[in-house]
Amino acid sequence: MRGTPETMRASVLTEVGSLAVEDRPVPTPAPHEVLVEVAAVGVCGSDVHYYRHGRIGDYVVTAPLILGHELSGRIAAVGAAVEPTRVGQRVAIEPQHPCRRCRQCMAGRYNLCPHMRFFATPPVDGALCRYVTIDAEMAHPVPDSMSDEAAALLEPLSVAIAAMRKAAVAPGSSVLIAGAGPIGVICAQTARAFGASRIVVSDPVAARRERVAEFGATEVLDPAAVDIAALDPKVDAFVDASGAPPAVVSGIKAVAPAGRVVLVGMGADNYTLPVSYIQNMELIVTGVFRYTDTWPAAIHLVTSGAVDLDSLVTGRFDLEHVADALNSDSDPASLKSIVRPGA
């Protein structure tokens, strides 16, 4: 890899609540991989969870781990089986390594691959470093009109696209979104891009309600002051981006007969659902676990102007200040923090 250094700087989670900047070897791309020089990394709630708690469900941090899975960059080198003309290409990274051979992969559901190696999911390192490798087809070219930061945020936009597809949001439909954090705001924009005519967003924080009204919501509600379950008229779909059990229960009851419920937020492992309502209304309840084949749609939504990702960025940090980026969610005014490993 001519011109590529042998070592790089990386922000490493050494134990719960503790980070260190270390020198790590620059990875070498396998034949079908590319080496990407990282330009921007978005901070996700899962990164924060690993930082503060050392685990998410069954995924437990047992060794030093590099966080970060929302990223963009430039191809610095390619494996032997990749076209060399890709060197220098600006790309947004889909941070997944599926096996491509299991039943789920063969059925087109590679996000459910039981052998998946996903960035920043123990024990797989993420992108808060200078260079990463990824399968060549998971490095999606982006136009020069798209910023590095927007390209990195195609990852959470992909979550929202997957959610809207599951919710069957279509022109003229109505949707309720619980939570006006980063995913909730991106879901509101995506629902609008998918043609929803009524987009109701609930959040207990006034500043977040005001902000989401600028990003596609047609109605904003305070769940502490309004009975969400009594929403009238009821909505075609409910998307939970909060992970809060009360929000999930009230949101389900706000869905019209034959509607859809999509669980996106990370919350409690178990809680009681209104089963009789789900049965009697014939609701479809499902979850979203990452995404499949969403980057082309995400790139289109951003380049067409239907979704604005640049305006979501409220903080920028370097590798020495990753802890500040991870803790920025304590500020209600913070929406999306970006780390630039090369800064």
Rank of each mutant, 00 (worst) to 15 (best):
R90C: 02
R130H: 14
A107T: 02
E15M: 04
E6M: 12
E149G: 06
P245G: 12
D148T: 00
E214T: 15
L263R: 05
I66M: 11
M164C: 14
P98H: 05
L71N: 14
V16T: 15
I299E: 00
D227Q: 12
L312Y: 04
A152G: 02
V288P: 04
D236C: 10
A127I: 02
A268E: 12
P122A: 05
A224E: 05
P123Q: 01
P122T: 02
D125I: 02
A244K: 04
K253Q: 15
F289G: 00
G315W: 15
D236T: 13
L263N: 06
S11P: 07
V159F: 02
A92I: 09
G265P: 08
R52M: 06
V21I: 13
A40F: 08
N111Y: 11
G45S: 09
P246T: 06
R290G: 01
R109A: 11
A160L: 07
V87Q: 01
P182A: 12
G126F: 07
G243M: 11
T4Q: 07
W295M: 07
V339S: 06
A217K: 10
C187D: 03
C105Q: 07
Y51L: 09
C105S: 07
E6K: 10
P341R: 08
C102W: 04
A162Y: 14
V43E: 08
G305C: 04
R24L: 14
E320L: 12
I134F: 06
H32K: 10
K336M: 08
K253M: 10
G88D: 03
G108A: 10
A92K: 09
G181P: 03
V91L: 08
E37Y: 02
S145L: 09
V175C: 12
V249W: 03
D269R: 15
P257W: 01
N111H: 15
S158E: 01
D324E: 15
A20Q: 15
A10L: 11
H97Y: 15
A333T: 03
A150C: 09
T85K: 14
S147P: 07
R24H: 14
Q96P: 02
I183E: 05
I177L: 13
S197I: 00
Q96Y: 13
P31D: 09
A237M: 06
G172W: 02
A230H: 12
L157A: 11
S304V: 04
R117K: 14
L35T: 00
V36E: 05
D125Q: 09
V78G: 07
C187T: 07
S173T: 13
V264R: 07
V38T: 02
R208M: 03
G315I: 14
D23L: 11
